[in-house]
């Protein structure tokens, strides 16, 4: 009787490695998850960038369609979410680059970097939108 799993032919029950459910919630964990989710969001949101550029490259009516969408409540909501995702992911990326270089993994620093990522993402989003409303 061949087992479906080629490297564990024995049918004996083996202990599994602990999965997500056993971990207590931490901010560093939440920022790691947020990094992946915002990355996936930006992936889909890139369609908006392509639409904007294509609309500007075509005639005025194509651009008017895009303008109408992006200036609607729904469009602004999506653009605001996109802006936040961009800055959250950007700061999360900086955090990851710092940790990949071997720094900031001890107790005070890692919490501070996670907090800075969370707060900085919202602050940068609000700053850019404030400038946007001021210059439009």
């Amino acid at each position: 009787m061949a087992s479906s799993d080629p490297i564990s032919p024995s049918p004996a029950a083996r202990p599994l490695s602990p999965h997500l459910g056993v971990y207590r919630f931490t901010l560093t964990m939440a920022m790691s998850i947020a990094h992946r989710i915002t990355g996936a969001g930006l992936y889909v949101g890139a369609l908006m960038l392509a639409w904007f550029l294509l609309a500007a490259s075509m005639d005025a009516s194509a651009f008017a369609h895009f303008s109408e969408f992006i200036q609607s409540f729904f469009g602004r909501l999506i653009l605001f979410g996109f802006t936040w995702a961009l800055f959250q992911h950007l700061l999360g990326g900086v955090r990851h680059l710092i940790m990949d270089a071997g720094y900031g993994m001890d107790d005070p620093e890692r919490e501070q970097m996670a907090q800075a990522t969370l707060i900085g993402g919202f602050v940068l989003t609000l700053v850019v939108w404030a400038i946007g409303y001021a210059v439009r």
Partner: peptide, 20 residues
């Protein structure tokens, strides 16, 4: 497919704005 399509759409659009 998705990443290439977005990339090429953006390149096409920017070049079209510049040259057409």
């Amino acid at each position: 497919c998705f990443a290439s399509a977005v990339a090429l759409a953006c390149v096409y659009a920017v070049l079209r704005i510049g040259f057409v």
